[in-house]
Computed example of a mutant assay.
Amino acid sequence: MHQTRSPAFSPTFTAHASMLFWALLVALSFFAAAEVNPGLDALPLTAVRLLLSGSLFLPFLLLRRPQRLGGRALIAHALLGGLLALYFGSLFEALKHTKALDTALLYVSVPLLTLGGERLLLGKPVLQRLWPTLVAALGALALLGLDNANFDAYAYGLYGIGCLAMALYGPLSQRLKPWLGEARGAASLACGNLLAGGLLLVLACTLGQRWEGLQGIAARDFGWLLYLALTATLATFWLLHRAIHWLPPATVIAYSYLSGLFALLLQSFWLHRAPAPLAWVGAMLIILGIAWLARLSPARAVAA
């Protein structure tokens, strides 16, 4: 008798469930990052964080049969790691000139830009997924409070380049899959990209003489850095690479809108402060947009 696999345990369903957990980890990282000494230079901190995250993958990968990386695989990791370095570098430079809220508002564009990256790099149809992504994006703008934004041309221009780099990360990783190796798993791919990004940031910090910004780092700061490396970097990039194996990159990145929703709920719970009515409207639009995207994914998986 032929047995069919239950949809509840299909790879597509598992990918969506893992991205819900991903969004929660990202939301928790906002609170953890706030515990790190703000006087420390964020750029070398991120270089250490990426290198630490990539290195933590290595023991698990060494338990399996090691895979030799060819020249094309190393070039692909350098390109993808460069996108990560460009994103984080532009973010921290932009935060010197504007508020975190303003960068969060600009990040809303990343899933929409990822749709463009899918169309350009992968040749995939994206119009059907554009509308639910726009709904979720409008919800995120309402949630964050667009009226509180302060436009800074330099910060927005610089971080806009970083957002474009992050938007291209998912589609380009799919386009370079033949270079990276079709059989390689999510842990191996994330490890290579994080290490490459970390090394590029180390080079930038060395050339810019930024390592002095870590003077005075305490054990408590390193503890929070280790937590961020484990949960908000290692786990999130592993989950992201697992998900884009089954879901379109733009759908995966759209779950970042839920991170803002989770952060709002966590903040409301800890601070006992009720969100504004507009925030609840934004939350409902985010849930509607993500549910709409999830509804479209099974059809896409069958078509693929």
Rank of each mutant, 00 (worst) to 15 (best):
S10N: 09
L20P: 04
F21H: 10
W22D: 12
V26R: 00
E35N: 15
V36W: 10
P38Q: 05
A42L: 12
L45R: 13
A47Q: 05
L50V: 11
S55I: 12
L56E: 01
L56Y: 06
L62R: 08
P66D: 07
P66L: 12
Q67N: 07
R72I: 02
I75H: 06
A76S: 08
A76P: 05
H77Q: 11
G81K: 01
L84D: 05
L86V: 10
F88R: 08
K96G: 09
H97T: 13
T103F: 08
V108R: 00
V108M: 00
G116R: 11
G117S: 03
L122W: 11
G123L: 12
L127N: 08
L130E: 02
L138S: 15
G139C: 05
G145L: 01
A149Y: 01
C163R: 14
A165V: 03
L168S: 09
G170C: 04
G185Y: 11
A190V: 03
C191F: 04
V202I: 08
G208Q: 14
Q215A: 08
I217W: 02
D221E: 05
L225P: 05
L230S: 12
A232H: 00
P248N: 07
T251D: 11
I253W: 03
I253Q: 13
L258D: 10
L258W: 13
L261R: 10
F269L: 12
R273W: 02
R273H: 15
P277H: 06
I287R: 00
L288H: 06
I290M: 05
L293V: 13
S297M: 07
A299F: 10
